[in-house]
């Protein structure tokens, strides 16, 4: 409890971090050392060979906004596929910076950068490294043990919000980024990158842009690209389409046959067709108090009797789903999933 006890602890952490950065080439101890950005680091302007991207329907992380970038090494490319996350070449770096705008209604008022996560495809496998931004917003430092930050902002409705934001530890990255116990990216797939982005010369389809850069081979004609389904934009898909894609990105990284939640028998990938495996009238296995005294994962027509909804609404770490990465409930997504279950028969 005393300060003098903190010193050795901090010392141990520092030494450990130092030894980590000495032992391997990556990770570097500061984000700036990767040269991923040009100009002021906090402006997050990508360097020449770094491409920004945006997912159609992203993972919810306590309303944090995210900036995403990818660096694919010179002379290498991805081969297109329309069903799974892209198979990125070795040396690829995926970059994701989490931030909160000061005022969600007015981006000009500035933002607080919280953390930047790097997913690096090293010689043997993918590795994840979390960097935490300093208070001055001049640099982000590698921190393997995770952290809790207080964040404050004005939300879309003009309400002031303040809450804890959890930065996962390095092991927890793999809690989600896990395919058959191998680290893996989750987001960048054809169905998530089929939407437009403005790279400075007006809006372009991202997949097409990547192909033009020579980074993506074998893309089909524009008419055969997957639809850009945005979970909260009704014109982009049916309730079923949008709900399934939302569950896919928010749940299926664990809840799929080769993911860490495969012991539950609940599989929420958007390609899953077996209604039992999606949770329809499926009894829980090891949900414990996560069941909320309810009998089925999804009770068609009855969101209030569906464990899925109960766990999305909970903020209790022993109950809530996903297990990590949020301390708030995603009200808008809950409304979508409720509607989806309600319209089932």
């Amino acid at each position: 409890m005393k300060i003098n006890f903190l010193i050795p602890v901090l010392f141990v952490i520092t030494i450990s971090l130092l030894s980590l950065s000495v032992r391997n080439q990556a990770p570097l101890s500061k984000l700036s050392e990767y040269g991923l950005f040009s100009g002021k680091l906090s402006d997050q302007q990508p360097a020449q060979d770094v491409v920004p991207y945006k997912l159609n329907t992203p993972l919810f992380s306590d309303y944090a906004e995210k900036l995403r970038f990818v660096k694919i090494p010179d002379g290498t490319h991805i081969d297109y596929n329309d069903s799974a996350v892209f198979d990125f070449p070795k040396g690829t770096i995926l970059v994701k910076t989490f931030y909160f705008p000061v005022d969600f209604r007015n981006p000009a008022k500035g933002r607080q950068l919280i953390e930047t996560r790097l997913l690096i495809h090293e010689e043997k496998e993918w590795k994840a490294y979390p960097y935490i931004w300093n208070a001055e917003q001049t640099e982000a430092y590698l921190d393997v043990a995770g952290e809790t930050k207080q964040v404050k902002y004005i939300d879309e409705q003009g309400k002031t919000k303040q809450h804890a934001y959890f930065i996962p530890n390095m092991n927890q990255c793999k809690g989600c980024h896990n395919r058959s116990e191998k680290m893996s990216p989750i987001g960048p797939s054809a169905k998530q990158l089929s939407g437009p982005l403005d790279y400075g010369q007006g809006s372009e389809i991202q997949l097409t842009h990547w192909a033009q850069l020579g980074k993506l081979n074998g893309i089909p004609a524009k008419s055969s690209l997957p639809p850009a389904i945005i979970w909260n934009v009704p014109s982009t898909g049916t309730v079923n389409d949008r709900a399934r894609l939302w569950l896919d990105i928010n749940c299926a990284h664990c809840h799929r046959p080769n993911g860490p939640a495969n012991t539950s028998g609940l599989f929420l990938g958007s390609a899953e067709k077996d209604s039992l495996r999606i949770g329809f009238r499926k009894t829980p296995v090891a949900a414990g108090r996560g069941s909320g005294d309810l009998l089925f994962d999804i009770m068609p027509g009855q969101p209030d009797k569906s464990i899925l909804v109960y766990r999305m609404e909970s903020k209790d770490p022993g109950v809530m789903m996903p297990e990590l990465g949020r301390s708030l409930a995603n009200k808008e997504a809950i409304a979508l999933i409720r509607q989806w279950i309600k319209e089932m028969n």
Binding site: M1, K2, I3, F5, L6, V9, L10, V12, I13, S16, L17, S19, L20, V144, A145, G146, E147, T148, N169, M170, N171
Partner: peptide
Amino acid sequence: ISIVSAQTEIRKSIQSRFIM
């Protein structure tokens, strides 16, 4: 505050050892 931060530091210390 010192209790809360001490908790965090102990957790970070053990967690770092688990990782390293």
